[in-house]
C-alpha cells in the first residue's frame, strides 16, 4: 500500500516537474511568469486525444504532433504577446503577466468551444496492463510516464550544461545585457526558450492525459496553477528546484488523498505557495533574494 502510493506520488510528481520546468525556463530567461503555460499544456493534451483517439495514430506520433503544435504556440506567444512588450518604455512589469493571462483565457475558451466542456477520455493500448512485483502492482502507464519524465529532465539538464545553445541560454538567464554583449543572439535564445518550454508543456499534456485518462479545457488552469506553486516552492527560474518541487507536490498530494481528506488535495499547492512566499520567498533552492531591495 505504502509502496504503491509512493509510486503513484512519484509518477504524479514527475509530471508536475515537467510542467514546472516549462514555467521555470521562461521565468529564468525572461523574468516573466507565463500564465498561458497551463493552457498550452492543455492544448498538448488535446492534440494527444485527437491524434490517438480520432485519427488512431500511435502514441509516439502523438507526442511528436503535440510537440510541434505546442512549439508553434510557443513561437506565436513569444512573437505576438511577449516581444511587443519587451524593452518598451513605460510598460509596467505587470504587463506581460496580464498579457499571458489574456492568452490563457483565449486558449481555454477556444478549446471549450471546439471540444466542449466535458472530460475526454485518453486511451492507450496498455492502459489496463500492470505488472505485479510481490504484492505491489505497477501500471505500465506509470512506468512510461516516469521514464519519459526522467529522460526529459536529464536531457534538459545535459542540454543546458553541455551544449552551446544551452550555455547561451543560461548566460541569457544570468544577465541579458551581458550575454548580448558577449555575442549571444538573445532574441533567438528567448524565442528558443519559449518554444522549448511550450513543447515540454505539450509532452506533459499527453503524460497527464495518460495518467488520468481524461482531458478537459479546465485542466490547464488546475495543473498550471500547480506548476506555479512548484516553481515558487523550488525557487523561481531554478531548474533543480522545479524538479524537486514537482516531486514534493506529487508525493504530498498522493499521500493526502490516501490518508487524509481528498477534497483539499487541490488546496495543497496554494497553501504551499502562501507559506513559502511568507517564510522563504526565494524558494527552497533559490539563492537570490526576491526583488524588493
Amino acid at each position: 500500500m505504502l509502496l504503491e502510493q509512493l509510486i503513484n506520488g512519484l509518477t504524479l510528481g514527475s509530471i508536475y516537474a515537467i510542467v514546472a520546468l516549462g514555467f521555470t525556463l521562461v521565468f529564468g530567461v525572461l523574468g516573466i511568469i507565463n500564465m498561458a503555460h497551463g493552457e498550452i499544456f492543455m492544448v498538448g493534451a488535446f492534440v494527444g486525444v485527437m491524434t490517438t483517439g480520432v485519427l488512431g495514430w500511435p502514441l509516439w506520433l502523438a507526442f511528436i504532433a503535440s510537440i510541434v503544435v505546442t512549439g508553434i504556440l510557443g513561437y506565436l506567444l513569444e512573437r505576438m504577446t511577449l516581444r511587443p512588450l519587451r524593452g518598451k518604455k513605460g510598460v509596467s512589469h505587470l504587463a506581460p503577466l496580464i498579457s499571458t493571462i489574456g492568452v490563457s483565457i483565449l486558449l481555454e475558451n477556444l478549446s471549450h468551444h471546439i471540444f466542449g466542456a466535458g472530460n475526454k477520455p485518453f486511451r492507450t493500448e496498455f492502459a489496463e496492463i500492470s505488472i505485479e512485483i510481490g504484492s505491489v502492482s505497477i501500471y505500465i502507464v506509470q512506468i512510461v510516464i516516469f521514464v519519459i519524465s526522467i529522460v526529459l529532465m536529464i536531457g534538459l539538464s545535459v542540454w543546458l550544461s553541455k551544449t552551446k545553445a544551452g550555455k547561451a541560454l543560461r548566460a541569457t538567464a544570468e544577465n541579458l545585457e551581458t550575454a548580448s554583449i558577449l555575442g549571444v543572439n538573445t532574441k533567438k535564445i528567448i524565442t528558443l526558450t519559449v518554444i522549448i518550454a511550450s513543447a515540454m508543456g505539450g509532452i506533459a499534456g499527453i503524460l497527464v492525459g495518460m495518467a488520468f485518462n481524461s482531458v478537459s479545457p479546465q485542466m490547464g488552469l488546475a495543473i498550471g496553477l500547480k506548476g506555479l506553486a512548484i516553481i515558487i516552492l523550488g525557487g523561481m527560474g531554478n531548474v533543480k528546484g522545479a524538479m524537486v518541487g514537482g516531486l514534493i507536490l506529487g508525493l504530498s498530494e498522493t499521500f493526502l488523498v490516501a490518508y487524509g481528506d481528498s477534497g483539499y488535495r487541490d488546496a495543497i499547492a496554494f497553501i504551499m505557495i502562501i507559506f513559502i512566499l511568507l517564510l522563504r520567498p526565494q524558494g527552497i533552492f533559490g539563492s537570490k533574494i526576491a526583488e524588493g531591495r
Binding site: 506555479l228 477534497g263 502562501i274 512566499l277 526576491a290
Partner: peptide
C-alpha cells in the same frame, strides 16, 4: 514584502484556497 509578480501569484493562490 513581495513585489509585483509574486504578490499577484500569492493572491491568486489565496483566492483558490478560499474557493476550495
Amino acid at each position: 514584502r513581495l513585489t509585483g509578480v509574486y504578490l499577484a501569484i500569492a493572491t491568486l493562490g489565496l483566492g483558490e484556497v478560499i474557493r476550495v
